[in-house]
């Protein structure tokens, strides 16, 4: 289990963006973190993974404080611009002991990517696929995805959504933020709602549908349009 306890973060002297964020990610589930623009979803993910230092709070991953079981898929390119996809794969293989070359090759084939393509010449959709690949090919039980569907076309979205119905999901606890809730609602196991720097609501999606007849979007309207 990936436990997040009391994350707090303030930028400058304004109101804190995160004011005690706590939740858990269970293995073998797909959880979606929902919040309006600028609410701090991205900050939470980056805080968990160490890219933004938090003012307070802690992360416990399967009983340890080590982050090495968490993989991160950012919404920006992170490889130097001169690199080809092949270079990026070699890079990951060199630096990470839990890099799975086979998974990487499989995903390259599935996503129809060429290792000779330069990353910064790829379309936004293909760049998103590369980022996804770099995350999923690490044999880590927890995966964080920051807006994996942002600004990409419908067909690429479908390709990326496919991965959530594939065997690559097995054994992983995944936390995702997205605004494209419509297209992936049916894939999500859990939703957590962020507002005013705190988690104010959590649901098992199937329970919500079965017991209350509500979709995630319905609940979103209830939560944010008060």
């Amino acid at each position: 289990m990936l436990e997040v306890h009391g994350l707090k973060k303030r930028f400058g002297r304004k109101r804190p963006v995160l004011n005690g964020v706590s939740f858990s990610i269970k293995p073998d589930t797909l959880t979606c973190l929902i919040g309006l623009n600028g609410e701090g979803k991205s900050t939470i993910l980056k805080g968990i993974v160490g890219l933004i230092p938090m003012d307070a709070g802690s992360i416990i991953v399967d009983g340890t404080t080590s982050r090495e079981k968490i993989a991160f898929v950012p919404d920006v390119q992170t490889m130097p611009s001169y690199m080809t996809i092949g270079d990026a794969l070699t890079y990951m293989n060199d630096y990470y002991s839990d890099w799975n070359e086979q998974t990487a090759d499989e995903l390259m084939a599935t996503f129809k990517l060429l290792s000779t393509d330069k990353i910064n010449e790829l379309s936004k959709g293909n760049q998103a696929k590369v980022n996804l690949l770099l995350g999923f090919a690490l044999d880590r039980p927890y995966l964080l995805l920051d807006e994996p569907f942002a600004g990409i076309d419908l067909f690429t979205k479908e390709q990326i959504a496919w991965i959530f119905s594939s065997h690559y999901m097995e054994g992983r606890g995944i936390l995702m933020t997205t605004h494209e809730i419509v297209e992936v609602e049916h894939l999500i196991d859990r939703v957590i709602f962020l507002q005013d720097g705190q988690i104010i609501d959590e649901h098992d999606t199937e329970e919500m549908r079965e017991i209350h007849g509500k979709s995630v979007q319905d609940r979103m309207r209830e939560v944010y349009q008060r």
């Binding site: 797909l30 119905s165 594939s166 894939l187 199937e206």
Partner: peptide
């Protein structure tokens, strides 16, 4: 379960359930 998940485009957990 795996196959039906991929075929129908659902989460493998849902297939399991």
């Amino acid at each position: 379960r795996r196959e039906i998940a991929a075929q129908l485009g659902i989460n493998p957990n849902t297939a399991q359930k």
